[in-house]
Design a protein around this nucleic acid. Structure first.
Ligand SMILES: [Mn+2]
Ligand SMILES: [Mn+2]
Ligand SMILES: [Mn+2]
Ligand SMILES: [Mn+2]
Lengths: 219, 219
DNA sequence: AAAATTATTTAGATTTGTCTAAAAATATTT
DNA sequence: AAATATTTTTAGACAAATCTAAATAATTTT
């Protein structure tokens, strides 16, 4: 099944929008994709005829199982390319989205799987979003950067942003591991440091650099 | 100046075809791009109105200086991506062309320059073709794989396909360096080995594996 | 339960890139 | 120099993806 870039962008947009509501409206899609509702209706008909959507006129749309499978392939490519740009080409995590928006449409399956392997089969992209594996299986939880947690949020450490010996030394010293539970107490504007409480232990201070290297899931 | 994928493919095709003749005919282009002469004429008019071509109806076409500049950017991307696929993702050199045909249209200038740097600013792609630098300057000579030289051709070694210690050990033993001049004497079908004469020295045998790792320029 | 508002679809037009068939220009052969 | 063959351009059509304006369906307010 070959899809055009436009068709793929619609499929991916529906995938993300239906995460929230289950079903997606024509106007929602038009806003998301920066197009007009009339154009959306045209494309919904076309993708429905390709059996990628479950679409009831006036009632909204969602992906068929085949549509969902294709969406996951596109999301996989998007997030793997973002990881490549940040980890290998030293892009900042805030400047990769637009380029990945183009790269996600490169069609070679072999390329994607080799890229995945080259990157060490990462499970999360630079924004903490999970990367589907080559079978389209994706963890549902979202990793969040510790730096982005609001005070009084409880969370559990689930991965680290790098494997540098310096980082591991510091984590060892502070006795923080994958699975450690914590609660953010307060954040300081001056140096962007955080005070956190480690579950069962006391309060400690985390520098901006360290917080940025820790990914957590809220609990 | 934003170009569509089709426009870029035409520009690149004209660039390659005009290397030979200086000027390119409508039918040549149609054959090269797998389209019809009438479609070519339409596109030639369009690209001419964008000042990328010098086009005289019935007389053929060539790139303007701005067209040439754009062509070199596309060729640069194509060859850098091919290098990435072979050097980093372990693709075979014979299976990268089609994927690069898609990747060459990704538009981020920053991406290309970071990729170039990541690859160590290679001067030749996996097929021995020179890679234009970020200013559009390209060496005119083409590297050729030693394996592809015909008997009685003289050549000079100008690069090696890998930096493995095993390869370097063998080159040291055979006293072959960058700059060594040689002449292919004969080739053997059975094991694809070559007999070559090293300038000022005698004849030696080169295995298929070794020949494949040596790039030369003909002299 | 009407009326008014909002969301969605339909109808018709536009742009891009392609095609086929026919006309015109150029090149080759006699 | 004609006649013939080849190349190239023009004319008109089509599919894809978009748009605007108008019609219709659904929802919300009165
Ligand atoms: Mn996209
Ligand atoms: Mn992301
Ligand atoms: Mn291409
Ligand atoms: Mn190449």
């Amino acid at each position: 099944m070959h899809l055009t870039v436009s068709e793929e962008n619609y499929i991916k947009a529906i995938f993300h929008l239906q995460e929230a509501d289950g079903t997606v409206s024509t106007n929602q899609l038009a806003a998301n994709i920066h197009t007009k509702p009339a154009s959306v209706t045209d494309m919904l008909k076309k993708l429905t005829s390709k059996r990628l959507l479950l679409y009831k006129p006036y009632q909204g749309v969602r992906l068929s199982s085949e549509g969902r499978k294709l969406a996951l392939e596109i999301v996989r490519k998007h997030r793997l390319w973002e990881s490549f740009l940040v980890d290998k080409l030293q892009f900042g995590w805030d400047e990769v989205h637009e380029v990945a928006e183009e790269l996600e449409h490169i069609s070679s399956k072999k390329l994607v799987d080799k890229l995945d392997q080259f990157l060490g089969n990462p499970r999360f992209d630079p924004h903490g979003d999970p990367i589907p594996d080559s079978n389209g299986v994706m963890l549902s939880l979202r990793q969040v950067n510790l730096l982005d947690l609001k005070p009084h949020t409880k969370a559990e450490v689930c991965s680290v942003g790098s494997q540098s010996p310096e980082l591991l030394e510091l984590l060892k010293h502070k006795q923080i591991l994958i699975g450690t539970r914590l609660e953010v107490q307060c954040k300081f504007e001056f140096d962007h440091s955080l005070e956190i409480q480690l579950e069962g232990r006391g309060n400690i201070t985390i520098s901006q650099q360290l917080a940025q290297a820790l990914f957590v899931k809220t609990i």
